[in-house]
Design a binder for these strands. Structure first.
Lengths: 291, 291
DNA sequence: GATTTTTCTGTAAAAATACTACGCGAATCG
DNA sequence: CGATTCGCGTAGTATTTTTACAGAAAAATC
């Protein structure tokens, strides 16, 4: 139901072009939007100092079918509004505020990513990965941690997996690519020269280049299959945060895709890998995960 | 207004303990929650095959003041675009289902973690980290990728940071700990013997042990400061997923905490680090992130 | 197994809420 | 200055929601 992402913003912006009574309604809503979602049309009218039909007209002006519908939109747009915007950490934030903000940002990044998942490309990437004879995960900087995680997931599929941060190693391996080699390159910007060049080198061989990066970036263009996502990394921030989370989630999706492709008979294999860790644990109580 | 984030999940879970007609209402809502937010109580009642008061009672049972209030909650709880119900991936899932499920799981893990954040422990951990003379990030298995990320964040604070996956290196460093050394140990289970032993070794020195792990785990008990979270890693799954995401988010929180502690005069330093990457990019258009 | 008690559920009426039609008054334009 | 348009509120109507109550079903007790 693609409602307006931010109805409040809309109201605020159209404030100048509104009638006298409509302005009153707008102000009443803006002054306490949360309360507005729980009021009856009568209460809101009296709080704004106007008549009920004025409120109703106001609602219709903003595309709602009536007052209840308007309240619904207002409520939903506020949730998403909180999620999508204005959660930058300030220096004045204390311990009770900034952790929540950071989590909200992370959550909204995932929500946003979920909505723009390029399913087709993911399916193709799964194809490539499932059939790979060998997989190389390459990334630099922050994305290096993601490739490490990817390595950790994919070795389970009984495919040789490498993971290099050294650009020279990356180049050599890329140049030595052959049929069945998949070079999986992760770069948030898709503009890191070293990685784009690796992609170019690999393309000149028979190998396949799959990337997880930004749309229309040089890296995406150099790839046989590019999974591209626009992640609103808060540009104010000096520490990169949300992009890795999304990248990791995508890696999860790909690993799961390959698992599904392998079918149920593959589960015992995964279970064996997991069980192998039991002995490393104190009190074998529950030994669920790899860590 | 802290509504339940996952009203749908709530409904789904209380399904067994409901009356006959309430079950009907629940099913009607669950089958198309989006439509339910736009229906009148009469339509919903007839669709569910019950009377209007039954719907009303149903709403009140879930903490709403009445039907309109219930619709509001339902709508807001759904906005996040997340069907918290989905959960486990099935082998019958296709490309259009399982990615969404995985993202939903990731999102709900973060939401859950956000609600149980041990703020006090986080504040103490930030204290330790901000004053550290040296920081060692240790983890094994999946958590190793997280420590890699942590290393990547914390070196920016001009503190020597190490990150070892080799248990022997970990032990030696731990044994050599001294005042000002912080050993930050990440383990989802908190029962990995090698890591618990490292914590013990470090505790015997003047160093500080901070851990990110499970509540009441041996590792948590061996720590000067333990950030503990219960993360519902789906035990059916054979690939660990959500725990790393949460761990990464917590690392973000800690890094941000240290940044805030350093104050605004520290920003230019971070900006310089970021700028240093510009030269590695093609078309210097926008060079926002470390990757 | 019958009876009492409790719990559930629907009917119907009352209350609350939202909408429409209409008309008055102010602003605008000729 | 008059005519027209537009904005706004009043009052009535329609819709929706809630409450009160009573019958039916289920559970508990004897």
């Amino acid at each position: 139901m693609a409602y307006d992402i931010n109805l409040l913003e809309d109201i605020n912006q159209s404030l100048p072009g509104l009638n006298k009574s409509e302005v009153k309604v707008a102000q009443a809503i803006l002054s306490d939007p949360d309360a507005a979602t729980r009021m009856s049309i009568a209460s809101l009218a009296s709080r704004a100092g106007v008549s009920e039909p004025s409120v109703n007209r106001f609602c219709k002006r903003f595309g709602a079918s009536g007052f209840p519908d308007f309240k619904l939109r207002l409520a939903t747009s506020m949730v998403s509004g909180v999620r999508y915007i204005s959660r930058a950490v300030e220096f004045s934030d204390d311990i009770d505020t900034y952790p929540g903000k950071l989590f909200d940002n992370a959550i909204s990044a995932l929500v946003a990513a979920k909505e723009q998942l390029p399913t087709g490309d993911i399916a193709r990437a799964v194809d490539f990965l499932a059939q790979a004879r060998r997989i190389h995960f390459f990334g630099l900087g922050t994305s290096a941690a993601v490739t490490k995680d990817a390595e950790h997931k994919f070795f389970r599929f009984n495919v040789p997996v490498t993971n290099h941060q050294d650009p020279l190693m990356q180049r050599m391996l890329a140049a030595a690519g052959s049929v069945g080699d998949v070079f999986f390159i992760i770069s948030h910007t898709g503009r890191t020269r070293a990685l784009v060049e690796v992609a170019e080198l690999a393309r000149q061989t028979e190998a396949t280049v799959v990337s997880l990066t930004a749309p229309q970036s040089p890296l995406a263009q150099e790839s046989d299959c590019a999974i591209t996502l626009t992640i609103g990394e808060n540009t104010e921030e000096y520490l990169p945060m949300t992009s890795r989370l999304v990248q990791l989630a995508v890696i999860d999706v790909l690993a799961t895709g390959v698992t599904l492709r392998r079918g149920e008979r593959f589960l015992p294999h995964l279970a064996r890998i997991k069980d192998s860790l039991k002995a490393t644990r104190l009190k074998p109580g529950y030994a669920e995960s790899t860590e």
